[in-house]
Design a protein around this nucleic acid. Structure first.
Lengths: 335, 335
DNA sequence: AATAGCTATGACAGCGCTGTCAATTTATTC
DNA sequence: GAATAAATTGACAGCGCTGTCATAGCTATT
């Protein structure tokens, strides 16, 4: 009962092959025929069958996104971006949640590649830094795009943001508000972003001629609790900064909560900034000044790189724009 | 270069059809042949090609999960559960993020169904309550399973949890700790869960012979901020409850933050409980006593219902077990 | 006018599997 | 042990599409 390419061909008075050409936007079809075919297809409400297409062309019209447990919001945003790109190209997105702590996680990838022969893979962090994953993919000859990897990927283009520049901008923003005494909470030492963000902070302080008080730089772990702990260390000292830049939102929220506990109110007594613009940043009170990561754009770009012509594949990295979101938690210092 | 069913057949010394039978776990194959085929398949490292399979059998070995913007954590958990079920059945999960506020969101579903002929659809809330979606699916004759729907779905089995019972249990837990003066923050009036949770609270209070102080029951919107607002209303009153049960974690976290601001510490001065066990619940400080929703199990069950034999399809609803997670935010009242 | 060099189209096989149905082997019955 | 029933197995076509290559129709060139 389903409508096949044969039906469309008959109706348009052309061969199946010509219909196929039109459906695939190939160019050696006259404008007249193309129109005829398109009309026929529309009238019959025809949609090509991807399984058949895939079998004949040994493409699957599917790309996969592999992810490990990172923050759900991040993952979902990549999915949204990638889906948008897929839609533009008649592709669909298949997801494979993985848990690298499980011994069989590689099997799931093998399975995916064996069954589906996906045409490309998006590798969300931290999977893109697992050598075994990358090796499997290249051995199988499946093209992939790493998102925000910390490792090197040879000729393969990667998609990321500029953490260092973003941290620099945020620091300049704080300084621009009039702050001179600024604390910093570092991220988890194992995440490559941590070092970059800290680097950006230092660079901005340096170029503004501001001194960094080492007592106000504390290591955190990107968690709420570690942010609260770090905040306590900074705020309980004899001298206090007028602003604290936490290198992610969870930690910033932790600082806000500990500040309240210490009788300090944000932003009146102390300004706080985060990084990432997670949902938490705008739900917490006061809402956090933060850096919006272009996660959705990264998903989009990654999928697009897999699907579009390879012209761009000599570019080694696509650095997408972040955005500084100024909200309530960071204002000019008192007096 | 890829290995086909023919290679396996040759190697095992049987026909393609027999290999096919083994690969599909059909039963009319002798144990001996089955083993022979399995060995051959393993030795050749054979994996069936889903496109070919799909074309021949008019199944796609794909199920889709449709979701609209609900909380990322919820969505990801459903994906994880559904993926697990898919793996057991040789299926894969394809995701379609939708935005019902966009006029073209139905087109994306049409596209998905037209191209891929997925064998089933998981409908996350609130999509499962959109009549146009449900209608399209049944018109197309695609089977679907609604997760935690608030609307009615005829003969179709639904997967959900028992919000009312969970709220009752939480209330009894609080009462069991020794609290008698308990406040409640309702959820967003448009969500069906809100009423159920409130109902559970009332029922538990009633059956324990406890009076509900109307000043301590405030409407929220499931957001951090609304929780903080509601908390303030309750805590600034002349009399104060010794515990507050917020009907989700975001609001509970809001209560915790406002309590600190009012100079009350949790749980010493006031106990707070949430609902959902979102990541926030365990990252916040103190960690929230809450109800773990069986979201992952719901994803699993939904996928399983789509994939397994239809024996269970006369059951109209699968109510999965939640779990009360007692953490730091809720303890016995003072004195 | 004859040739070459295009572009536009079509015929046909076959991608790798499963459904159908017939053939074969094995088990069961009297 | 023949007859019948049941369990295994295989031959073959065909799922709906695209790749390959041949052909037809044109324009440009000499």
């Amino acid at each position: 009962m389903t409508i096949t390419i044969t039906d469309v061909a008959r109706r348009a008075g052309v061969s199946m092959k010509t219909v196929s050409r039109v459906m695939n936007n190939e160019n050696s079809v006259s404008e007249k025929t193309r129109q005829k075919v398109k009309d026929a297809a529309r009238e019959l409400n025809y949609t090509p069958n991807l399984a058949a297409r895939g079998l004949a062309s040994s493409k699957s019209y599917l790309i996969a996104m592999l992810y490990d447990i990172p923050s759900p919001g991040y993952t979902i945003d990549i999915q949204k971006g990638a889906t948008r790109a897929c839609r533009e190209h008649g592709y669909h997105l298949i997801v494979e949640p993985l848990d690298v702590s499980q011994p069989d996680f590689m099997d799931h990838i093998e399975n995916l590649l064996g069954h589906l022969r996906v045409d490309g893979v998006i590798l969300a962090p931290p999977l893109c830094d697992r050598p075994e994953v990358v090796q499997l993919l290249s051995r199988r000859n499946v093209s992939y795009i790493p998102i925000a990897p910390s490792s090197h990927h040879g000729d393969i283009p990667v998609v990321k943001m500029d953490d260092e520049r973003a941290a620099r901008e945020m620091t300049h923003h704080i300084i621009g508000l009039g702050h001179k005494d600024i604390g910093f909470i570092k991220g988890h030492p194992r995440h490559s972003a941590s070092a970059l963000r800290y680097q950006g902070f230092r660079e901005a302080m340096r170029s503004s001629g501001l001194r960094i008080n080492p007592d106000w730089v504390v290591e955190g772990e990107f968690t709420y609790r570690s942010g609260a702990e770090a905040g306590r260390r900074i705020l309980e000292g004899a001298e206090r900064p007028t602003a604290i830049f936490a290198s992610n939102d969870d930690m910033a929220a932790g600082v806000v909560s500990i500040a309240a506990r210490l009788g300090l109110s944000v932003p009146e007594d102390i300004s706080v900034c985060g990084f990432d613009d997670t949902p938490l940043a705008s739900s917490v009170w006061p809402q956090l000044t933060t850096i919006r990561q272009p996660v959705r754009d990264m998903g989009f770009k990654a999928a697009e790189l897999l699907l579009k012509a390879r012209e761009e594949h000599n570019i080694s990295a696509f650095v997408l724009d972040h955005e500084l979101v100024a909200r309530e938690s960071c204002v000019a210092p008192k007096e």
